[in-house]
């Protein structure tokens, strides 16, 4: 499956059909509310989770699909586990270990907020086509140059990652496996080659655009027409 669509769970629910700019605004508002919620308001977090569960249910995104993607959170779970041991404040005993009580509360809140954020973000990614998202960001008045750069990135994500994959196949078929830092120069040269290929591809794309009458500005609505295949 292609990189750009890895997280997408195609469907035809009201959540899928909802315009992307409303979804992004909704997600932003929801997450600002979550982030601004004081640590001690435990029932509120249950409420947030319930709201998310309802949205995920309406969108009919398979829960397993979301759970598998939640690994992006792992580094921060580690950070949260360390927190009770380094934070200031009253010490309490948990399972025979002395930990900071405020640190423990902070770690719990942190995990709850980060988990809600990842889950909500995954729901957006699972129900929104990349090109719909770009149209939505354009409506939200994101600078058009930024949207254009993003649209090129979304369009060529698979092409460039495929380039990289082919380089790895070429290396593997010649018996190369990276095992330790002594193999870094080989990997780095392949990244260098990937840069040259990507940059030159960008130059060719620009020439192709010029030859089709590009004047330096995306015609309105073209991004959606072109991505509709």
């Amino acid at each position: 499956m292609s990189v750009g669509h890895r997280l997408l769970a195609p469907g035809d629910s009201p959540v899928h059909r909802c315009p992307a700019h409303l979804k992004v605004l909704g997600l932003l508002g929801f997450m600002l509310l979550v982030v601004a919620t004081p640590a001690a308001w435990y029932p509120a977090y249950g409420g947030y989770l319930l709201v998310l569960a309802v949205v995920i249910g309406v969108a009919r995104v398979p829960p397993l699909h979301l759970l598998r993607r939640m690994v992006v959170e792992v580094p921060f779970v580690v950070f949260a586990i360390v927190l009770p041991f380094v934070a200031h404040g009253e010490q309490v005993e948990v399972l025979g270990l002395m930990v900071s009580q405020p640190g423990l509360v902070a770690a719990g809140t942190l995990l709850a907020k980060a988990t809600l954020g990842v889950l909500a973000g995954l729901t957006l990614a699972a129900t929104t086509e990349p090109h719909d998202l770009l149209v939505g960001l354009e409506r939200l008045r994101l600078p058009s140059m930024l949207v254009q750069i993003m649209s090129f990135m979304v369009r060529y994500l698979d092409v460039v990652t495929d380039d990289l994959r082919r380089q790895h196949i070429a290396l593997s078929s010649r018996g190369f496996t990276a095992r330790n830092p002594r193999h870094w120069p080989v990997l780095a040269r392949s990244i260098g080659a990937l840069f040259i290929r990507s940059f030159e591809r960008g130059e060719r794309i620009h020439l192709a655009m010029l030859s089709r009458g590009w004047s330096g500005k995306m015609p309105r609505g073209m991004s959606s027409e072109m991505s509709n295949r």
Partner: peptide, 20 residues
């Protein structure tokens, strides 16, 4: 637009390369 887009894609792909 095209060049920054392709370089962004390159950076994204580069972050997928694992250095043991």
């Amino acid at each position: 637009a095209p060049l920054a887009g392709l370089v962004a894609t390159f950076v994204f792909a580069t972050q997928m390369v694992n250095f043991p």
